[in-house]
Design a protein around this nucleic acid. Structure first.
Lengths: 342, 342
DNA sequence: TCAGGTCGTGAGAGCGTTCTCACGACGGAC
DNA sequence: GTCCGTCGTGAGAACGCTCTCACGACCTGA
């Protein structure tokens, strides 16, 4: 281990300038790829930067540019489940892939509980980020309020529950659920049940609404005995399915509002001796990896995740560019993915 | 929607000072809870802060204090799995709970692939954070190199694969695995198999080492037919177990290196008509939520996650405090949790 | 009464950048 | 040869904050 002299702390623009024999301004120009620099000066500066292992201080830079080149993905979850949700993982992956080409950084902020949510609110208001993509899951969430209270560019992942005017990107959950349920009905199934998501989340609400719409469209009323609430987890799906089988042993199909839950439901069905799809047809939602791997491979509803993350970034960058909020919204079409379970 | 006049941008210290009729210095003192402020001045400032909805600009503050009050949890994963790993979720939860009492912020940085890892390296070197907790999973990971190249306080979650001198906190994976395997042997099982984790991760390596040690201590050699590699996922566990059953149909116990894998293994066993624990005893690792919920409830090895996250924070804050790296390490004891599967 | 504290306060110098200007050098057009 | 435009450059003022220092006002004890 050798250290370069007695210096402590990082080298500054000034030191680079001195070493290169130019002014601070010229170094700054080189560092920021300004064209108006002579080749000789550029070379000298680059050498000095290299020699000193100079890295610009972002704080100082941000102070004057009022840009941090960082955006935050905020997830306000009360429980831990969120991380294990494949949908969430896909969003993170998609966002970070979209941003890889740009010089924007992505940071994740997760909060459970009021204190942590307020802390996150403070963090973004203090100017750490240029914009926020918010995955707000539950209706009792403080973050939408906290964040709309700022003038910070903001895009929601998922329609806001209370319909307030904010930019958002969402999948057509209602349409997708209706299509899934419609498929089951068109297959001749008479007693189509559903395992819903939590009814304090938009995705849970909308997917249930889609189910209801499809059932009613077929001329039947929705039988409460055919509806059980899940929590988007595999265990929850298993529980709900077991419950359904007790309440309505004659059910012959089920639309499950998420793939992890559908996996649990299939297990419950199997444990109860029902064959899938022969006795009970199953359709899930999300087209998670687990859907294809499952036995039998799950028929499900796919969301265009790539398109959705791209749109989120696009909407957010637009706001950042123009320096003001927009209320543009995008709803993406879903697609039925036919496999073996229905 | 009403806006407060024609102002654009956030209010500054100066404006607060002007409104409160004091100097910038006094406002700063109030904002930072310095005791040497008269009650009247304090009140006036607080009112002004309230009125203007003043929030200090962190960039400006950091520029002078050289502190960001933010630490990063960096995870360099190549695959998406990480998020769904309950261990990871627990670490995040633990860290953010530990930091909730402090005024430190926690940001998550996730990187897949070389480009993104370098981007993260740049991010932390630019001075965005005061320290880093690194969950480096695989041996081909660039981040440990990138980060040790800086003078930034750094604590690893998990022993570094190459034994380099860095501060880290880890569970006694080897000891835990040996205890688990020992339990199976002490139960009179003769053919104890194992489903390992990836052998390019420390946890995978160490848990396999523990298995080997326990088997050898019992006076037997390790039978390669009794070893199958998993990837810490449920699907991987199922695959590996199926493979083991083909290779060694006479096995009567299995130590599975993670709970999600153990769940998969149990399913594979059941599919093959083996009863757990009568025909095959199973022990997992991690004491994830899924272990208790599983059927039968899984005997497993618990890591003291709370203690571990506390130690990580402690070690990191210590380095930040003293302004220099340390190479202190902490290895935490694991505990066997006896349930029904063995 | 005066020396020596303490206490609250404000002026002002930084922190490491960017960015606006102004300035000299040089080139081409007349 | 003069004039204008471009081009590379550097000086210096921000950006919003903290922190040192000095300065009065007040209190205490001799």
């Amino acid at each position: 281990m050798t250290t370069t002299g007695t210096r402590v702390g990082s080298p500054t623009l000034d030191e680079v300038a001195q070493l290169a024999g130019v002014s601070r301004a010229t170094v700054s120009r080189v560092v920021n790829d300004s064209p108006r620099v002579s080749p000789e000066a550029r070379l000298a500066v680059q050498a000095a930067v290299e020699a000193l292992r100079y890295v610009p201080n972002r704080m100082a830079r941000s102070l004057v540019t009022r840009r941090t080149d960082t955006i935050a993905l905020v997830l306000s979850e009360s429980n831990t489940q969120v991380f294990s949700d494949p949908f969430f993982a896909s969003i993170v992956r998609g966002l970070s892939a979209r941003l890889a080409d740009t010089d924007l950084n992505l940071v994740l902020l997760a909060a459970r509980g009021e204190r942590e949510q307020e802390k996150i609110g403070r963090y973004v208001r203090q100017g750490h980020v240029d914009g926020v993509i918010l995955m707000s899951l539950h209706s009792d969430d403080l973050l939408p309020d906290i964040l709309t209270g700022t003038r910070l560019p903001l895009v929601l992942s998922g329609r806001p529950l209370d319909g307030r005017p904010i930019a958002y990107v969402d999948a057509d959950n209602t349409g997708g659920a209706a299509a899934a349920t419609g498929l089951l009905l068109s297959l001749g199934r008479r007693r189509v049940a559903t395992v819903t998501g939590p009814q304090d989340m938009v995705a849970g609400l909308d997917r249930f609404a889609g189910y209801r719409a499809a059932v009613e469209r077929s001329g039947r009323p929705v039988d409460p005995a055919l509806v059980a609430a899940g929590d988007f987890t595999e265990a929850g799906g298993m529980r709900a399915m077991t419950e359904l089988l007790e309440r309505a042993p004659d059910l012959d199909a089920v639309f499950v509002a998420s793939d992890p839950m559908a996996v649990g439901a299939v297990q419950a069905l199997r444990a109860a001796g029902r064959r899938v799809p022969d006795d009970v047809a199953v359709v899930g939602f999300d087209d998670a990896a687990v859907a294809a791997a499952c036995d039998p491979p799950l028929t499900t509803v796919a969301q265009p995740l790539g398109e959705m993350t791209t749109l989120m970034v696009e909407l957010l960058l637009d706001q950042i560019e123009h320096g003001e909020r927009s209320v543009e919204t995008r709803v993406c079409d879903t697609a039925l993915v036919r496999r073996a379970s229905a």
